[in-house]
């Protein structure tokens, strides 16, 4: 598949186009231009590295939403074995915007739950652009409980613009569905590890994000509101989204500095979509290490630590 380039990647795009051209003519050219191709490729890689070394928050949010970025099902296939997808909330429907599966990570059985975006137009619509409805959150809840019952760690993969703002979603209790997940995840008697793999959009993301360990990919984003939404409300102009992105503190680096995530997983040069396999290797390793943290700890202790961590969220002044 051809890489699609973001605006700020134009210099890379131009180099890549030139390389492509050379490769095309190389076959029927008498001259050996492979050295030239090699130089250009190195240059393109350096360019990519340089550009990605100084991405702003708004650019990072574009990478987080990159149409070729690996999604939950890609990770399920690439990082886990013995994958068995489980469907439905047992009450209303199966929401394709959230997928859940029994799977094995490095041989150990786990429950994986994540939002799923679509790749092409048809699949995007089928997955509702990764915006879950209440039945999606209720499916997730059912699978958390199932994992708890059989003592399987829960791994959530977060990638959503937000919970779906629709008529039916409201009728079926979108608020309650999200709230119930927050409540149950706080007291679930099995370890929970959450990973922001792409877009962490507000309450719709948080409903999968109450965890003992919070990991985040280097170019993921996690925010109380989308930069566009924030800009149109506070600046009265969606064009101010880059300013909003910067000030909202949505990037892995900012959130790590604020103490709101535990670990940043570095991405391959130029983002996860340029080397999905490399990305999965790093994440699989990090998840393995993270799950080891729970070994030898009692469930009571894990739950207590989780509770204290939740209670510590927030920054305020306190008069003595």
């Amino acid at each position: 598949m051809k890489t699609s380039f973001l605006d700020f990647e134009q210099p890379i795009a131009e180099l890549e186009a030139r390389i492509e051209e050379l490769r095309y003519v190389q076959d029927d050219s008498a001259l050996d231009i492979s050295a030239e191709i090699k130089t250009l490729t190195a240059k393109s890689q350096k360019q990519t590295k340089d550009i990605y070394a100084k991405l702003g928050a708004w650019q990072i949010s574009q990478v987080a939403r990159h149409p070729q970025r690996p999604y939950t099902l890609d990770y399920l296939q690439g990082m886990f074995t013995h994958v068995e997808e489980l469907h439905g909330d047992r009450a209303y429907a199966d929401d394709p915007a959230i997928v859940g599966a029994l799977a094995r990570l490095n041989g150990e059985p786990v429950m994986v739950v994540g939002q799923q975006k679509g790749r092409d137009t048809k699949e995007k619509i089928y997955r509702n652009f990764g915006m879950p409805r209440p039945e999606g959150y209720r499916k997730a809840l059912r699978l958390y409980r199932l994992a708890e019952k059989f003592g399987l760690p829960v791994i959530t993969l977060i990638d959503t613009p937000g919970a779906y703002p629709g008529i039916g979603a409201e009728e079926r209790g979108q608020s309650e569905a999200i709230a119930r997940n927050l409540y149950v995840m706080a007291e679930l008697r099995t370890p929970i590890v959450a990973v922001i793999i792409g877009e962490g959009g507000s309450g719709g993301a948080l409903a999968l994000g109450v965890a003992d360990q919070m990991l985040m990919l280097q170019y993921g984003m996690y925010s109380v509101i989308s930069p566009e939404g924030c800009a149109s409300i506070l600046w009265k102009s969606a064009e101010k989204a880059p300013d909003a992105a910067e000030t909202l503190a949505i990037t892995a680096n900012r959130l790590k500095a604020l103490g709101l995530i535990d670990r940043i997983i570095n991405e391959p040069v130029g983002g996860a979509h340029r080397d999905p396999e490399g990305m999965m290797q790093s994440l699989r390793k990090a998840l393995g290490e993270t799950l080891k943290l729970f070994q030898g700890r009692s469930m009571d202790e894990i739950i207590q630590t989780r509770y204290e961590r939740l209670m510590a969220y927030g920054k305020f002044k306190e008069a003595s």
């Binding site: 409540y183 109380v224 920054k315």
Partner: peptide, 23 residues
């Protein structure tokens, strides 16, 4: 809803208040 100006700190109050109710 959540207060935008405190960013993710605000979002996480949803988790904090809900967790308190488990106690």
């Amino acid at each position: 809803g959540a207060r935008m100006q405190e960013g993710l700190f605000s979002l996480l109050q949803m988790a904090k208040t809900s967790a308190a109710l488990t106690a």
